[in-house]
Design a protein around this nucleic acid. Sequence first.
DNA 1: CCTTCGCTTTAACCTAGGTTCGATTTGACG
DNA 2: CGTCAAATCGAACCTAGGTTAAAGCGAAGG
Lengths: 250, 250
Amino acid sequence: MSSAPEPTLRPLLRRLSYWGKFDAADEQALLNLPHRTKNIERHGYIVRERERAIHSCLILSGFAIRHKIVVDGARQILAVQMKGEMVDLQNSFLGVADHSVQMITEGEIAFIPRDEVRKLAFAHPNIGMAMWFDTLVDASIFREWIANVGRRNAHTRLAHLLCEFALRLKVAGLGEETEYELPMSQEQLADCTGLTSVHVNRTLKALEAEGLIQRRSSRSVTIGDWKKLARAGDFDSNYLHLHEDEAALA
Amino acid sequence: MSSAPEPTLRPLLRRLSYWGKFDAADEQALLNLPHRTKNIERHGYIVRERERAIHSCLILSGFAIRHKIVVDGARQILAVQMKGEMVDLQNSFLGVADHSVQMITEGEIAFIPRDEVRKLAFAHPNIGMAMWFDTLVDASIFREWIANVGRRNAHTRLAHLLCEFALRLKVAGLGEETEYELPMSQEQLADCTGLTSVHVNRTLKALEAEGLIQRRSSRSVTIGDWKKLARAGDFDSNYLHLHEDEAALA
DNA sequence: CCTTCGCTTTAACCTAGGTTCGATTTGACG
DNA sequence: CGTCAAATCGAACCTAGGTTAAAGCGAAGG
């Protein structure tokens, strides 16, 4: 009884299966995508803004961020990406990268040639639609972040971000219902929310004082009362376009 | 010699042709998409957040905005859409709308059944790829807006927005090189940039005082020196993914 | 057990942009 | 050409969050 080796691209299949139904041929074609994998250390770049991107990169482990640097050197984080997510469909299909993608933990990345992805998408419409869907959900999250950063105060903004992480980590199978390990420093949280790290610190402590979250080690977040935190964060999971049974916690 | 009637969906063909090459069959299939058109008055809604969207809507004339309302009633505008743009691919493919789309001028809209769009995309990969590309560019603009609202000051933010409009209007064939009619009030500009209308007013006057823009009537914007305005707005057109010859003005 | 280094925390002070509330201008319509 | 509503403009005052800088603190490595 020889067990077949676990296919490297399984996490991608898991992720895309969330958005659509595939038949056996679809699955085989997906898992057989040519690729090479590479370990990238913490803070290593996957793509840099203005570079020509020709691979679609899949996160097999670890966390990455998308970010841009504005004129005075300030950084804005645009998204946090986790296992199973394709971080460079966007840049590679568009040609020249309009933002950078960087690891915030050490992790393993699969590099898939862009043209293979494109061929697969049109040869297998089920997969193509799921991939398109996936990029549309990314766009939906970007929209929510515009509103978060543009129109919510620091308190609400941070609570919202913590809710988003809780739910996305749960769906990705990476976190508990009400407790998770946040892979980010307070400075990185600040760059997600358009705040300063000093104010993130103040605000996090306020959230803790109100009993909305607890923090054991500096990175672990425990959500005391999901409903209350969601209310404080003006959080409505609709924009994540999850299946109904996963759209809420607890 | 009877001249064929101008196809209603021509503006969509023009727009998508920007992203890829189509053959005659592609073009015919696109122009033959079933649809009905409707005139929508100023402030009329095309879709409302949380509604089930089943049409992809094409703007034939006029301007629309995408927006969200946050908990305290504040509005964040997420994008401004113009002639030839498909404003509801996003919402309709995803099912339940995660944001509202509203006209800010009177205009004509073509409603195309979502499933027809999907069928077309996979029956004609050239078109499908162009449509996907188009949604990826939308996402790129969302990313830039996150950075704009999150990390730039009011002055830079507004200058950036004015640059974006100038370039997009020009590419859409709706504005002059250096002068255009802005279809938005100062309050709407405020909701694009996460500012208040009072501060938009102050900042606009500052931009004018510095000679970066002139305003004849209250809505017309004339750009004195494109390079200077672009510098003031930390504007790099890369994120619009335009063809090289159009990526800069004058 | 000590050092180093990256984070987190705290405190004092400051400013960009918000708030409020009028006054003026513009523009559509009769 | 007068009226009404919407938009712009202006001034006085205020606050959420930024800035700077200096302690703490904990995990990794010697």
